[in-house]
Each structure stands twice: as C-alpha cells, then as structure tokens.
Design a protein around this nucleic acid. Structure first.
Length: 225
DNA sequence: TAGGCCATCTGGTCCT
DNA sequence: AGGACCAGATGGCCTA
C-alpha cells in the first residue's frame, strides 16, 4: 500500500459515515457484522450473494458471445445513454467512412466487443453497489463509479477491523476474566472505533474532487426545483 | 452555462 | 491472429 492509499484509508472519518447515515437514513447503515443493508430498493433487487454470483457468471455468459454477435448487440444509436462520439457514423464523416468495408467491419466488431466489456464492468459495479451500505432507493442517486469503489474499499476495511476487534474481545473473554472487570483500553471503544476507525475525510476529499461536493453524490433524484 | 459523470469510439499494447 | 485491456478523445445528459 502506498502513502497515498494509506492517507486515503486513514481519512475515512466518522463524520463522513455519519453524514452518509444522515443522508440515507438509519436503515441504510443498520449493518453490523454479518448484516448488509437490505437491497430491497427497486434498483438493486438481488441479494448480495445472488448478485455477486451474477457478477461472476455474467461476464462469462456475456463475453462468451452466448447471444450476441459482434454487430447485433443492444447498441442503439438513438438511445442517448448509448450514443458515442459517432466516429463510425457515415453521417458525421468519421474516419471509418473512408476505410474499406472489411476494415470497417473489423472496427465495428472491435467496438462491439469493447462495448460488451464495458457493460460487463458496469454490471460488476452494479453488483458492488448492491452490497455496500448506502440507500438503495430509486429516489437516491446512484453512486458514481469512483464513489462506489471508494466506499467499497472502506467498507471492507471497516469490516476487517471490526472482525479483528471481535476476535480480540473473544480472546479477552476466554482468558476467564470477569465481565465486570474494567475493560482494557484497547477494547473500550469497541463498536465505535472498531466500526468507524478512521479519521479525516478522504472520501469527502475524493468526492469533492470528482463531484464538486460530497452532497452532490447523495442527492435525491426528486430534489428538483 | 460550467462541471461532473457517463457511454462509446479508437488506436496502442500485451497476452494466449 | 485475435481477444483483452487500457487510456485518450468526444459528445450527450444532468445538476447547481
């Protein structure tokens, strides 16, 4: 882990998590060990396990060319979300319009493959979104890619740390000490520092970098003027 | 209107 | 040779 990453990890703060909690509501962060927020929102209907499996199998299914030939995938130039730069569009006189038919065909094939690859990547990101703790509500804006990765990374770190604290607690109890004896300093913050171990605000920092403000990441869709 | 985010195209590189 | 991966470029949509 390099210094930048370390700084990032250390900087996920209680404040940031508190902020997320407030924005998404308590239910979105009602996760203890073993409890991931329910993905009952309409957008992420799969269970985490099922979705993970889907993510694992989806790539092989789709990339295997199960149903898509190179040129007949779901690309729709009229769909605003699927429109690209249009360089292969004769109407725009792109480079491909001047190339031999064979080269153009090859290019289209490569483009289709790349599109599928990116769709697989996005499917995997959706799967990741579905298992990290934030409000999976249709009224909440979907996490951006970068926010998804940052949140997931820190969620993993928090879980790992919580697990470690749990192990230490079990070891301590197994030593036969009275439960009424003073809790060691190391265990005193269990449930707080263990779950929210970091100080600073790297997520906010990165969110600011990529989104302008942290708040913009979690804005509600129906917050329209 | 500017900035953020995204999908797509494209050419280059690496791998099998 | 063909496919996967990557990064840059481009243009569209959305929001503050």
């Amino acid at each position: 882990m390099n210094a930048g990453e370390e700084n990032l990890l250390k900087s996920i703060s209680n404040d940031t998590l508190l902020d997320l909690t407030q924005r998404y509501g308590q239910s979105a962060f009602g996760f203890g060990p073993g409890q991931v927020t329910g993905s009952s929102g309409g957008r992420y209907p799969l269970t985490p396990a099922a979705d993970f499996l889907h993510g694992q199998t989806g790539k092989s299914n789709e990339s295997g060319g199960e149903q898509t030939s190179d040129d007949d995938d779901s690309f729709d130039p009229l769909d605003p979300r699927k429109r690209g730069s249009g360089f292969d569009d004769d109407k725009h006189g792109g480079p491909l319009s001047k190339k031999p038919k064979e080269q153009r065909s090859l290019r289209l094939s490569i483009n289709a493959r790349e599109r599928r690859r990116m769709h697989d990547l996005n499917d995997a990101l959706d799967g990741l979104r579905s298992v990290i703790p934030y409000a999976h509500s249709p009224s909440v804006r979907k996490l951006s890619k970068i926010a998804t990765l940052l949140l997931a990374k820190n969620y993993i770190l928090m879980q790992a740390q919580a697990l470690e604290e749990m192990r230490r607690l079990v070891a301590y109890l197994n030593q036969g000490q009275s439960i009424n004896s003073p809790i060691p300093t190391a265990l005193a913050p269990f449930g707080q520092a263990a779950v929210y171990p970091f100080t600073g605000s790297a997520l906010a920092t990165h969110a600011d970098k990529y989104s302008g403000t942290t708040a913009s990441l979690f804005k509600h869709h129906n917050d329209k003027p």
